[in-house]
Computed example of a mutant assay.
Amino acid sequence: MVTTRGHSDFWRTTSYGFVRDGGHALLHHFPQGSATEVTFLADFDRLYDQVGLMVRVDAETWIKAGVEMR
């Protein structure tokens, strides 16, 4: 289980110049050439609550995918 503080996220230079590298993550080593399958159990109760998967190399090299409460 991961519980975050407010206004934390990972974003990289959006169209309006927004950069944020202060989110929370449950980290695990991911060897090159491997694959992963994930299942999420999310209890969304606030606008913009989200859950997803992030593959991170460093602060400028990463990809994330997920779902968000709207």
Rank of each mutant, 00 (worst) to 15 (best):
residue 19 V to G: 02
residue 21 D to Y: 03
residue 65 A to V: 09
residue 51 V to S: 01
residue 21 D to C: 03
residue 1 M to G: 09
residue 55 V to C: 11
residue 68 E to F: 07
residue 53 L to I: 14
residue 6 G to N: 12
residue 37 E to C: 09
residue 45 D to N: 14
residue 66 G to V: 07
residue 52 G to P: 00
residue 37 E to L: 05
residue 69 M to A: 15
residue 17 G to S: 07
residue 70 R to Y: 12
residue 16 Y to E: 10
residue 48 Y to S: 06
residue 27 L to S: 13
residue 63 I to Y: 06
residue 39 T to H: 03
residue 21 D to E: 08
residue 68 E to H: 05
residue 61 T to Q: 15
residue 13 T to A: 08
residue 28 H to T: 13
residue 3 T to N: 07
residue 63 I to W: 11
residue 68 E to R: 13
residue 12 R to L: 12
residue 59 A to F: 04
residue 42 A to Q: 03
residue 17 G to R: 10
residue 6 G to A: 15
residue 15 S to I: 03
residue 66 G to W: 02
residue 17 G to I: 09
residue 68 E to A: 03
residue 64 K to A: 01
residue 44 F to V: 05
residue 50 Q to T: 04
residue 52 G to N: 04
residue 1 M to C: 04
residue 68 E to L: 15
residue 52 G to V: 01
residue 4 T to H: 05
residue 42 A to K: 01
residue 22 G to I: 05
residue 22 G to C: 10
residue 69 M to W: 08
residue 66 G to F: 03
residue 2 V to I: 06
residue 56 R to L: 01
residue 36 T to Q: 08
residue 24 H to K: 05
residue 69 M to V: 04
residue 44 F to M: 13
residue 31 P to A: 14
residue 61 T to W: 05
residue 51 V to H: 00
residue 17 G to C: 11
residue 44 F to S: 03
residue 61 T to F: 09
residue 34 S to Q: 08
residue 64 K to M: 08
residue 67 V to R: 04
residue 57 V to L: 11
residue 61 T to I: 04
residue 29 H to N: 08
residue 53 L to K: 02
residue 22 G to E: 10
residue 29 H to L: 06
residue 10 F to H: 09
residue 38 V to C: 02
residue 55 V to H: 11
residue 65 A to Y: 10
residue 8 S to M: 05
residue 19 V to P: 00
residue 22 G to H: 11
residue 34 S to D: 08
residue 61 T to G: 01
residue 11 W to C: 08
residue 58 D to K: 03
residue 64 K to L: 02
residue 28 H to F: 09
residue 34 S to E: 14
residue 7 H to Y: 09
residue 23 G to D: 05
residue 21 D to F: 04
residue 25 A to I: 13
residue 67 V to Y: 04
residue 55 V to W: 02
residue 70 R to K: 12
residue 13 T to R: 09
residue 59 A to E: 15
residue 33 G to S: 13
residue 36 T to P: 00
residue 10 F to I: 06
residue 19 V to Y: 09
residue 31 P to D: 11
residue 35 A to V: 06
residue 16 Y to K: 11
residue 62 W to P: 00
residue 38 V to E: 01
residue 5 R to C: 06
residue 54 M to V: 15
residue 45 D to T: 08
residue 29 H to I: 04
residue 16 Y to S: 13
residue 17 G to K: 06
residue 9 D to S: 09
residue 6 G to P: 02
residue 33 G to W: 05
residue 10 F to D: 02
residue 23 G to M: 02
residue 41 L to T: 00
residue 44 F to H: 12
residue 59 A to Y: 05
residue 66 G to E: 12
residue 17 G to H: 14
residue 70 R to G: 02
residue 25 A to D: 08
residue 4 T to E: 07
residue 47 L to F: 12
residue 61 T to N: 15
residue 13 T to C: 08
residue 26 L to N: 13
residue 15 S to A: 13
residue 35 A to T: 10
residue 62 W to C: 04
residue 14 T to R: 12
residue 11 W to F: 13
residue 63 I to F: 14
residue 5 R to P: 00
residue 70 R to V: 06
residue 48 Y to T: 14
residue 1 M to S: 11
residue 47 L to P: 01
residue 61 T to C: 12
residue 42 A to W: 00
residue 52 G to R: 00
residue 17 G to Y: 08
residue 3 T to P: 00
residue 34 S to W: 10
residue 18 F to M: 07
residue 39 T to E: 11
residue 24 H to R: 06
residue 57 V to S: 09
residue 21 D to R: 15
residue 48 Y to C: 04
residue 63 I to M: 12
